[in-house]
Design a protein around this nucleic acid. Structure first.
Lengths: 139, 139
DNA sequence: TATTGTTATACTCTATAACTATA
DNA sequence: TATAGTTATAGAGTATAACAATA
């Protein structure tokens, strides 16, 4: 078995730290859009114009299918998503964003992916390096 | 207002992607330790031998104090943490890990911060670069 | 028979409001 | 008066088990 370097552990530890910080912040951001963290997560997974089977959402969220049913119920009652039976397999229901849902998702993604000021302090070269490295690590 | 570079946005987007991936994975990891995601988060915030006021946990978690009461209730009933009145201000209760809680937290931290294989594919120089850059970005 | 999604149920998470004890 | 923590309550998140429809 390969030895995991000290530097790799340090790097991952920083990423875990980042994760928990974001986890604490998500409810705040979500509330501004009148969403829950779980709803943000689900909305983030549905790309506009790309209907997705509910089953796949459950897999990606690593949660039970019954949970997705409840989440989608609430999003649908607010007119953000739409359930439609799949043409190919009538057991499957695919989920799509409504125009309203699409706009709200754009708002969410925009707020979440706007980088903090600290990123601007890096040189362009460092920013590119970070992108390159993260791409490889998170693939 | 300063312009935010394209590279900075790309980098942050990757970090957000990482966040959601981790968010989906935490319940799995937590279940293996018979914990909930929220309990993991709280446990992660209490360092062994460093008692912390409940109030500060609520602040760090960015949640209501009553929520912390419930979380701590469940952790305490399992013998993982201990509430003690602060000597200085008797309104305050400080939280401390029990030996059992300390061991479980170590297990949790160990599992969470063990880097994935992808990190090992970076050169040592890249790993150090990543640590250096993340440290500045997440400060 | 196996799979997709739903329903019923139970427990946890979470916020709000009202409360107690302390400052 | 203000603050730390609790309790009561209600709604959302989550898993399990049983179920209906479809494959």
């Amino acid at each position: 078995m390969k030895h995991t370097s000290r530097d790799a552990c340090d790097a991952w530890q920083l990423l875990v730290q980042f994760f928990f910080t974001q986890r604490a912040h998500l409810p705040v951001l979500a509330a501004e859009l009148e969403l829950s963290p779980a709803q943000c997560h689900l909305l983030h997974l549905i790309e506009p114009g790309r209907p997705i089977p509910m089953r796949r959402l459950a897999e990606t969220l690593a949660c039970d299918a019954s949970n997705v049913t409840g989440l989608v119920d609430r999003l649908e009652s607010r007119g953000l998503v739409r359930r439609r039976p799949s043409g190919e397999d009538r057991r499957v229901k695919v989920l799509d964003l409504t125009p309203t849902g699409s706009r709200l998702r754009a708002l969410l993604v925009d707020r979440m992916t706007t980088p903090p000021a600290t990123l601007g302090r890096l040189s362009v070269r460092e920013q590119r390096m970070l992108v390159r490295i993260l791409t490889r690590v998170l693939e």
